Measured scan of single mutants.
Amino acid sequence: GLMCLEHEDEKVNMYCVTDDQLICALCKLVGRHRDHQVAALSE
């Protein structure tokens, strides 16, 4: 899978609806997407 741009060791596994961007779990937990609307990726 694709790796996160901000956290190079994390794979992107969710999608930020607010930013129209693929993000990883760390982005959602501690990153700038924590208050955004996110959706899980169905692979």
Rank of each mutant, 00 (worst) to 15 (best):
G1R: 08
G1P: 07
L2W: 03
L2Q: 12
L2C: 14
M3C: 05
M3W: 04
M3L: 09
C4V: 00
L5T: 09
L5K: 13
L5R: 09
E6R: 04
E6D: 07
E6P: 00
H7F: 00
H7K: 01
H7C: 02
E8Y: 05
E8N: 07
D9V: 08
D9E: 03
D9W: 09
D9K: 03
E10N: 12
E10P: 02
E10W: 05
E10I: 00
K11L: 06
V12Y: 10
V12S: 03
V12W: 05
N13G: 09
N13L: 05
N13W: 03
M14F: 02
Y15M: 08
Y15D: 11
C16W: 00
C16D: 09
V17K: 15
V17E: 13
V17F: 06
T18V: 08
T18G: 08
T18W: 02
D19I: 11
D19N: 08
D19W: 00
L22F: 15
L22A: 15
I23D: 07
I23K: 04
I23L: 10
I23S: 03
C24S: 00
C24W: 00
A25V: 04
A25E: 10
A25M: 05
A25S: 12
L26E: 12
L26I: 02
L26D: 12
L26S: 14
C27W: 00
C27H: 02
C27P: 06
K28Y: 06
K28C: 07
K28W: 07
K28L: 06
K28P: 10
L29N: 12
L29Q: 10
L29R: 14
V30W: 04
V30I: 07
V30P: 10
G31M: 02
G31A: 05
R32S: 12
R32K: 13
H33N: 03
H33F: 02
H33W: 00
R34F: 02
R34V: 08
R34I: 10
D35W: 03
D35Y: 04
D35C: 07
H36P: 01
H36L: 01
H36V: 01
V38P: 05
V38F: 13
V38D: 07
V38Q: 07
A39H: 09
A39Y: 03
A40D: 11
A40H: 07
L41V: 09
S42N: 13
S42F: 01
S42P: 11
S42A: 10
S42E: 13
S42D: 14
E43L: 05
E43P: 08
